[in-house]
Computed example of a mutant assay.
Amino acid sequence: MHVLVVYCHPVETSFASALHQEVLKNLRAAGHTVDDCDLYAEGFDPVMSREERLGYHDVPRNQQALAGYVERLRRAEAIVFCFPTWCFGLPAMLKGFFDRLLMPGVAFDISDPANVKPMLTHVRRISAVVTYGRPRWMAWYMGDPPRKMVTRYMRRLTANQARADYHAYYHMNVATPPRLARFLQKVGQAMARFA
């Protein structure tokens, strides 16, 4: 499969960075082609401008500012997101990626507003590798928006045809090296079996 890996963390020495490298290594070893989209390294601009918002529904002109990213998304047969959870949500950079890229004519057809049609039906697999600072019960209490974004919203854009999985490490605030190593190994194994 051709896998788009969307990575979002500004620090190259972070545990998220180690997870990102484990994802890439194991997907490639499993024979997948990988498009590594490192949002910070690429200098992705997460801010939707006034002009962009005014032209949001103007298909296909709305895609001009992100033409390269639109093409990368259209080539993807699978997507793996790798990011930390901050304030119980997506990092602003990744939220901006969703806001700007998942637009009419790319992620959904809104020509009939009463019957919006998903357009990411070419995506067969969605996965996420995510860290949380707090425990699982706290994420659940807060509604766990990142989990819902990946396992519900992204699946909806594939007409609920893509299989989705979510690999979460909770309570980074009290992480220990052995527990981190076990999670890293678990993620590597999941990516090695990715299909």
Rank of each mutant, 00 (worst) to 15 (best):
F44C: 04
M103Q: 14
F81P: 01
Y153D: 10
A164R: 07
V130N: 03
Y170K: 03
V47A: 08
R74T: 10
F15H: 04
R100Q: 06
E42L: 15
R182I: 00
M119C: 07
L66M: 14
N115Y: 09
E42M: 14
Y170E: 03
N62S: 09
A192V: 10
L90W: 03
A175Y: 08
G31R: 13
K117S: 07
R100G: 02
G96K: 05
R152M: 12
M154T: 09
A18V: 14
S127Q: 11
R155F: 01
M1P: 00
V174N: 09
R179P: 01
H167F: 06
P118I: 06
P146E: 04
T121K: 13
F108Y: 15
L54T: 12
L39T: 00
T13Y: 11
V150D: 04
P118Y: 08
L19C: 01
R152C: 07
A107P: 01
R156D: 10
M172V: 08
I110D: 15
C37E: 04
A195G: 06
C87T: 08
E22R: 15
D109C: 12
R50K: 14
M191K: 06
R28K: 15
M142Y: 06
M48P: 04
M48Y: 00
S49W: 04
L19T: 03
H20A: 05
A181Y: 09
A159T: 10
T13S: 10
H57Q: 13
A30I: 10
T13P: 02
P91V: 04
R74H: 11
Y7G: 01
T33G: 06
P91F: 02
I126F: 04
N62W: 00
F108R: 10
S127N: 09
S17L: 10
H9R: 05
R74S: 12
A195S: 11
A162Y: 00
E52N: 05
V174M: 10
Y69K: 13
S17G: 07
M154F: 11
R28T: 11
R72G: 01
G68A: 15
A41E: 12
L101W: 06
H2W: 04
P146K: 02
R61I: 09
V23C: 02
R156L: 12
C87V: 08
R136T: 07
C82Q: 14
Y56A: 09
G43A: 04
L184V: 08
S127T: 07
L94N: 00
N160R: 11
A162S: 09
D35Q: 15
L94F: 06
Y56G: 01
C82M: 06
Q161G: 09
Y132T: 09
G55D: 01
S111P: 05
L24F: 04
R53A: 14
A190W: 06
F108I: 06
D38W: 03
G68Q: 13
M119F: 05
C8D: 03
P146L: 02
D144Q: 09
R72L: 01
D109F: 11
V174F: 15
T13D: 14
L120C: 03
F15L: 07
S17Y: 11
T151G: 01
M93L: 14
V130Q: 02
G55L: 02
K95D: 01
